[in-house]
Write a protein that binds this DNA or RNA. Structure first.
Lengths: 189, 189
DNA sequence: TCGATTTGCCTAAAGGTATTAGGCATATGC
DNA sequence: GCATATGCCTAATACCTTTAGGCAAATCGA
């Protein structure tokens, strides 16, 4: 019988698509095998276990998201860069909810070190170059931005902002205005 | 043989404790049955299914958290109230990680309506009473605060801020300072 | 090009979780 | 004290995960 041509990479990509369709925590080795028309045990030649599949999807999503941020940031500065950065995050989460959820997977220190996490942090610092912040304020600001973006996207996707006016797009714009104002006027300790 | 005295409430509380010990998504009907020294099927007289258990834990946690916020806000205003509110969230998440994760469970509109979600929103508005914000800015600010608190706690617990100086307590204080400054000086559209 | 070896996918099997159906014993109410 | 309702149990089905061992297809060396 012909071989299916499985590889960890193909499984990871298919897993990412599956995550977007059914949710990251519904991603299952069995379903993936079904999609490749292959028996479940066959996947274990390419993946140590179910956890490794999830980790790979997470690392894949982190890279993909970092690539998009990098592209969006090119040639922008100040509030323009801030908004571009923020919109990439939000759009990615809406377009790929499963992959976005995957980026929140808790990684081991080694996995985290090998991930695109560092690029995300660097790019956040790049955005802050348009504002006048020294250390340690810059680090505080990096963490604040990460919190706002992740928190907003997470609550919005979870339906936390539903059923109430004004619409979330309006709030999103005003939040970006507010963050820009805050960064231009960062309070002294 | 003696009866175990199961009720949906006891199962919910035990489920919340289990969540704190092993993580919300590791909460299982089987493990719960084991803890009550009872057969798994017995739980299905009290719970429709595994999903209902999770929903009940989520509703329980939302109530518990709302109660703590209410207690903390009593007699406070302005930045004092802001910090108290924020600290309750953060402390709750640290003390009860599983329950905190449960509060992020996506609820149906009916479940959400019957939950303490409304109290949370009301209390956030109460905090904003100390600042001079009309509508729709107040709603934008409510969403911003929710995003920052949830995002920060979520990233901090997920290890997103690890391995780097300055420590997260310092950042937390400075973030609260920044939010206070921002709310006192909310930018016009 | 043929034989040896590696590699890829399969069958088989064990163990865990979720869920339903049906039974017996223990409480509860008249 | 008896009838009923209720609580927990046994049994069975259906997934999902993971490991062990086997056969055939691809690959490599001569």
């Amino acid at each position: 019988m012909a071989r299916a041509g499985l590889t960890a990479e193909r499984l990871t990509r298919a897993g990412a698509e599956l995550a977007d369709e059914v949710g990251f925590d519904q991603v299952t080795v069995s379903e993936l095998a079904r999609r490749f028309d292959v028996k479940v045990a066959s996947l274990y030649s390419h993946l140590r276990n179910s956890q490794e599949l999830k980790t790979r999807i997470a690392l894949f999503a982190l890279e993909e998201l970092a690539d998009r941020v990098a592209a969006a940031l090119a040639g922008r500065a100040g509030k323009d860069a801030l908004a571009a950065f923020a919109n990439v995050y939000r759009d990615y989460a809406r377009e790929h909810p499963g992959r976005y959820a995957a980026t929140q997977l808790r990684l081991t220190p080694e996995e985290a070190a090998a991930s695109a996490g560092g690029r995300h942090a660097q790019m956040t610092r790049a955005v802050l170059r348009g504002y006048d912040l020294g250390e340690p304020d810059q680090t505080h600001a990096v963490r604040l931005l990460g919190s706002v973006f992740h928190g907003y996207v997470s609550l919005e996707m979870g339906g936390g902002f539903s059923h109430s006016a004004p619409d979330t797009q309006e709030t999103w714009s005003r939040v970006l205005d507010a963050l820009d104002a805050l960064l231009r006027n960062w309070p002294a300790p």
